[in-house]
Design a binder for these strands. Structure first.
Lengths: 145, 145
DNA sequence: GAAAAAGTTTAGCATAGACTAAACCTTATG
DNA sequence: CATAAGGTTTAGTCTATGCTAAACTTTTTC
């Protein structure tokens, strides 16, 4: 009885724990995606560009990049541009694929481009593979919109 | 030229700033929603129940509740149950409505109940009114599934 | 009704993410 | 090529969210 109650609570707490763990990962994904984008767009990623795009102070970016470097996603030399490691590229590509899919799905749903852009940024990190597949199916069935 | 670049960066940073602002609000919404649920289910909300459901330590809940009290969403007396203020109820109802809509939408999309439950918890906080409306329209068009 | 169990609070600590200010390199300009 | 401008890093601070351990209050049980 007590055991069942505890287990039930544990099961019900799963989505929340998932949400909290996501937060740890979210910013990291945003950073590597953005770095990948900057490298593609202009050949290199600099701290200032990241700070501007994220709407955040330079110092914040520097601190976060140090963490990403510790976690093996990024490499940097002092006062030089920032690069992604193999793992960093993997995460970035994965994120970009998900992001694109969610954004296109929202457009197919009939949402404005502006809203699709903003909402997909937030939703991207909370969508399971199963839901991504369902979104892809929907787009196959509704190629117009 | 410089101005245009800065403005463009500001525009592009909007989704990220939105995501960060959401984070501040997310946990708060989760708490008030859960408190509302507990009150409905069993007449009162206690710290331990919240801690179990969220998968978090008692002390963490106590600390967060103090913040929610400071922010005028919750009232509590030492060693007594927790109540929502008018603002707290408003936020909880709003959250529950959004949550329900997103979960039902995912089900209508063809996602499993388990995944719909988990993903809706994460997505709920990142969906704009426009997207919610689009989801509602979709469900009207696809009442089956 | 006293002792044990359960629940709640407080204290102290850690990490992540944000900031400003100041120091420090690099690049651009005159 | 010296200096000014701009980009980067470091130092120090703040808030939010977590934790454990210990103190304290309430409830339950015998």
């Amino acid at each position: 009885m007590t055991t069942r109650k505890i287990q039930s609570a544990k099961l019900r707490s799963a989505p929340f724990r998932r949400t909290r763990a996501d937060h740890q990962v979210e910013l990291t994904e945003d950073y590597v995606e953005l770095i990948a984008e900057l490298i593609d767009e202009r050949g290199e990623a600099r701290g200032t560009d990241i700070a501007m795009r994220l709407g955040v102070a330079n110092a914040t970016v520097a601190k976060t990049l140090k963490r990403l470097t510790d976690h093996g996603l990024v490499t940097q030399e002092p006062y030089r541009a920032i690069f992604l490691t193999g793992d960093g590229w993997k995460m970035a590509e994965n994120g970009r694929r998900k992001h694109q899919l969610v954004e296109n799905f929202l457009l197919a749903l009939g949402v404005s481009a502006e809203t699709a852009r903003i909402d997909s940024e937030g939703i991207e990190h909370h969508v399971s593979v199963e839901t991504l597949k369902a979104m892809a199916r929907f787009m196959v069935r509704n190629p117009n919109n």
